[in-house]
């Protein structure tokens, strides 16, 4: 196999976004993710499609939309596709994204429920679905790596990342009050930087 240089390999973090996709492309992309995202890690899928592969959304916009999505009520990933859909195509973009994103899982859960009722032995299936879930964790790790990499250019950002990860992930502090304390500090740091 000849080594074809990968054009995306060494590009700087701030890459110019491509022209906004059409409504059909948004709907189909979200439909695909909705149907294939077994094992969780949906924000990892969204990152792969919207940021890494298609470059419709910048890394930083993705991460900040993710923070907003987690603070508001509702499934985080649904809020996230609403934010990105709006950014790309306004209200119609949000609607296309949410519809595409939910129509697949709507039928999939019902089909799976019928299937489970008819399966006698599910232990092998469980082993396989564990593997899917572990791999989906890897999709989330990609977001973490990119975020940390970006933050090395601005060390206070690294401190914010570490503080949130430790407080919520290890110390199990409640997410909303914690973000309400840390987010203003982080925004103030970004303000002073600019």
């Amino acid at each position: 196999m000849t080594a074809v240089p990968d054009p995306t390999a060494e590009l700087p973090v701030a890459i110019a976004a491509r022209p906004a996709p059409g409504l059909g492309a948004l709907f189909l992309t979200c439909l695909k993710i909705g149907l294939l995202s077994f094992g969780g890690g949906l924000s990892g899928w969204l990152y792969q499609e919207f940021v890494a592969r298609n470059r419709w959304i910048s890394d930083e916009d993705f991460a900040s939309s993710l923070a907003i999505s987690q603070m508001l009520p509702g499934a985080n990933v649904v809020n996230l596709v609403i934010c990105m859909g709006d950014e790309l195509r306004g209200l119609a973009g949000s609607v296309a994204c949410v519809l595409g994103f939910l129509v697949g899982p709507f039928f999939a859960v019902i089909a799976l429920s019928a299937l489970f009722d008819s399966l006698p032995d599910v232990t092998m299936l469980e082993a396989a679905s564990n593997g899917v879930a572990y791999a989906a964790l890897g999709l989330l790790l990609v977001i973490c790596l990119k975020g940390v990499q970006r933050a090395t250019k601005f060390p206070p950002g690294l401190v914010v990342i570490a503080a949130v990860a430790i407080a919520v992930g290890l110390l199990k502090l409640p997410l909303i009050p914690l973000v309400l304390v840390i987010a203003p500090v982080s925004v103030a740091l970004a303000w002073r930087r600019s």
Partner: peptide, 12 residues
């Protein structure tokens, strides 16, 4: 800009 590292921390 300030919310981005918060989002990354939450994913971790």
């Amino acid at each position: 800009e300030g919310l981005a590292p918060v989002g990354v921390g939450l994913v971790i």
